[in-house]
């Protein structure tokens, strides 16, 4: 790791002010991606601005059909939250599938979403549930937030405060995880709302994306078999040491079917 300076601001305003005057500084929350990246010298920052302990960024609240989760809330706290389990059980389940217990004890919702790793779990929930990303500057709809591999709509110095998830009728997540890293080789989040069906896919493409052909198919028939003929564009799918495009495409379809099958057991 290159030498750096650590600062722990006392408020969100202080953190934002620090970032504005230190262009080479970087926000640190759980550090579950950032610290390993720094150790490998893949990144170099003048300062780490630790916002993990800011009270303003913590907490889980359900109000008016919406579930709001503070950006610095740990994956473990989302996974065990009675409020999350009641409002959106698939979201609690997803949080409990991230990495491993030690990672879930430090990693945060905001960190995962801001990083937008193409194989991370949370982006699938945020996009699938059509959540709103609330930052220090504005509110960003999920459909406008994710911009491909490690890219988001966040501007320099903009900090995620919380994420607001509309409570759906039903939702389910199915994931094929890489056995060593815990990342999704394919993860599919399926959501049913009064407006229709949304299907978000992570782990397969250069970033999380909506599988619109599947949404159309499921709107007609909410059954796993409805996905058999749904077209899936795979030109930009990841090919790596683990699997090729065709294999990943099959994983996406199978995970989507599993998620739809789970929906049936989650009637409300």
């Amino acid at each position: 790791m290159y030498a750096l300076n650590y600062v722990r601001p006392k408020s969100l305003a202080e953190a934002a002010k620090f970032l504005a005057s230190h262009p080479e500084a970087k926000l640190l929350a759980g550090g579950m991606t950032l610290v390993p990246t720094l150790k490998q010298r893949l990144a170099r920052h003048s300062h780490l601005v630790d916002i993990a302990q800011l009270r303003e960024l913590r907490g889980i609240e359900v109000k008016d059909g919406k579930l709001a989760i503070g950006a610095a809330t740990r994956h473990h706290d989302v996974a065990i939250s009675a409020a999350v389990k009641k409002a959106i059980p698939a979201l609690a389940e997803l949080a409990g599938l991230i990495g491993d217990p030690q990672v879930r004890n430090l990693g945060t919702l905001g960190g995962s979403v801001a990083n937008n790793d193409p194989a991370a779990d949370y982006p699938a929930a945020v996009l699938g549930l059509s959540a709103t990303v609330v930052t220090t500057k504005r509110e960003i709809a999920a459909d406008d937030f994710f911009r491909g591999m490690f890219a988001t709509a966040l501007e320099e110095g903009e900090i995620i405060k919380r994420i607001v998830f509309p409570v759906p009728k039903r939702a389910a997540y199915a994931k094929f995880h890489h056995p060593a890293s815990g990342y999704a080789m394919a993860g599919v989040f399926v959501v049913v709302t009064a407006q229709g069906v949304r299907v978000a896919v992570t782990g397969a493409g250069p970033g999380v994306f909506r599988w619109k052909a599947a949404e159309t198919a499921l709107a007609k028939s909410l059954k796993p078999a409805a996905l058999d003929g749904a077209a899936l564009k795979v030109d930009d799918f990841n090919e790596d040491i683990h699997v090729d495009r065709a294999y990943r495409a099959n994983l996406v379809r199978v995970m989507a079917k599993r998620a739809v099958a789970k929906l049936a057991a989650r009637g409300r």
Binding site: M32, V35, K39, L48, N105, L106
Partner: peptide
């Protein structure tokens, strides 16, 4: 009180 990996934390 929570288990963490001390190689990945400053």
């Amino acid at each position: 009180g929570r288990a963490v990996k001390s190689c990945s934390m400053l």
